[in-house]
């Protein structure tokens, strides 16, 4: 497992990658020591790169949540992959650990703060392609903004391609991924091809980790 600490200098955003298991005791203990340097407020564990957690790892998360609370910090475990979220749900920890729940009262970094909405551009027709640009955050809380795109599929004709430009999208969670999959399924049934264009950063990584890039056609910008 890898842990990096980032954010706006307050050491309140921890990014995890790999597996969180009984082998990660030392790395996690060192990370917990960093909590003493954080001012009270929200604390995020970004789990977008975590694909496996065992019961030892769950215990470490519960301990981190308790230790954060003692220091006036509110832990949010974000970008949790579906399999890991299911596991946490099995033990009734989704609420306790505020899994994938948007932060209330201020995010830990300016980056998160500025991207709490999903913006969908008007459709742009380019020959047989209809292009829609998404920007901001694609989450459970913002996915309703995408519904008109799904409903708009009925206006397309068989053989057309619907392109979603994702270059302006900074964050997507499992709900957003599910919505994209539903969009793809519905388009396929209608004989319409789909394409995800230009995902970058964490969005690109999430598409890879969720294997959505094996289902939908993804193009990258140079």
């Amino acid at each position: 497992m890898g842990i990096t600490i980032s954010g706006d200098g307050s050491l309140r955003s921890f990014n995890f990658s790999g597996s969180l298991t009984f082998r990660d005791n030392a790395a996690f203990t060192a990370a917990l020591a960093e909590l003493d340097k954080a001012a009270p407020g929200p604390l995020t564990f970004d789990f977008s790169g975590v694909d496996y957690v065992d019961s030892f790892g769950i215990g470490l998360l519960v301990l981190a949540n308790d230790e954060a609370a003692k220091r006036g910090l509110t832990l949010h475990v974000l970008n949790v992959q579906p399999a890991v979220e299911k596991l946490l749900g099995h033990f009734g920890l989704v609420e306790d650990l505020r899994v994938n729940r948007p932060m209330v009262g201020g995010a830990p970094s300016a980056q998160h703060h500025a991207l709490e909405a999903l913006t969908v551009s008007p459709p742009r027709v380019e020959g047989r392609r209809v292009v829609v640009a998404l920007s901001g955050q694609f989450t459970l809380g913002t996915q309703s903004a995408f519904l008109p795109v799904v409903e708009g599929l009925t206006a397309l004709t068989r053989g057309q391609t619907c392109v979603l430009e994702l270059g302006g999208l900074d964050f997507i969670d499992s709900s957003g991924v599910s919505m994209l999959l539903s969009f793809h399924d519905q388009a396929t049934r209608a004989g319409i091809a789909t394409m995800l264009d230009g995902p970058c950063g964490r969005v690109k990584e999430m598409l890879r980790l969720s294997a959505l890039d094996t289902v939908m056609f993804v193009t990258e910008r140079g």
Binding site: D54, S55, F56, I58, G59, L60, V62, L63, D66, L87, H90, F91, G92, D96
Partner: peptide, 17 residues
Amino acid sequence: GAAAGGKCGRGFVLMKS
């Protein structure tokens, strides 16, 4: 079984699940 807020004891529950 595992205590709801406990830091350990979930391994057996997880295996059974």
